[in-house]
Amino acid sequence: MKKEEFISSGLLELYVLGSISNEELSLVNDMLAQYPELNAEVMRIESDLIRLAESQSPKPSAKVKSSLLDAIDVIEDSQEKLEEKKAKVIEIQTSEKGKTSMTMLLMVAASLALLIVSAFFNYIQYQEIQLAKQTIASLNQEKEVLANDLSTYKTSIESAENKIAVLRDTANVTIPMKGLDISPNSLALIHWNKYTNETFIDIASLPEAPTDMQYQLWAIVDGVPVDLGVFDVLKSAATLQKMKTVGNPQAFAVTLEKSGGSPTPTMENMYVLGAV
């Protein structure tokens, strides 16, 4: 674009007025760089615009300038103070930082030490608790064993008491049944009540019965064997086992029979026999 053409375009006026697009602005900047003498034209336009504006109103009162300069003093003062304060804060922060890091280090070290000690005691405590738990468990077990024993003893005491009661009862007759050839060392006693006809067997010694067999007690009444029931050989020696009642027995005998008993005794399996 030629210089004269450019001047007459009105772009320079709009440039000073600030009412210009970005493309126009770069064109103006290019032209101003290319033709430095255009700057004089810009000055002239600016000067015109300033005079035009000035013609529109009276001057502002003189106090505005002094008030402005005061305001700027205040701004600069507070700015300075602000910067001083910032500097102080930074100074304090840096000096505190040194202290802080040492203090922090000590604190961290102390915390770590405390943590380790605490962990150690926790471990010890844990061990102790585990031990205590184990002790309690074994004590509980022992207690159960003892309770079982106790109930066993109770039972055996009860049966012993029963036995004593039976033995003391003068109405009872005790008939020993001695071992036969098949088991000469065996021995069992019958306590028979002559009034109530109650019959108790008291096993002193009988071999353990095979698993599928049981001992069976018989009474001989008028030469005929009468079934008084099957029994097991109990561990507790003190136990009396109550059998079926029988009246007027002449003898008692025990045979080994199939489990549950037989209607008639197997004579060759007779272990003990005793006459009343």
Binding site: A53, E54, S57, K59, V64, L68, L69
Partner: peptide, 18 residues
Amino acid sequence: ISALYDNYSHALFAIIHQ
């Protein structure tokens, strides 16, 4: 700022006043 004020305050004041 003092010189700037002397040069431009009247014109800028006029714009503001408008």
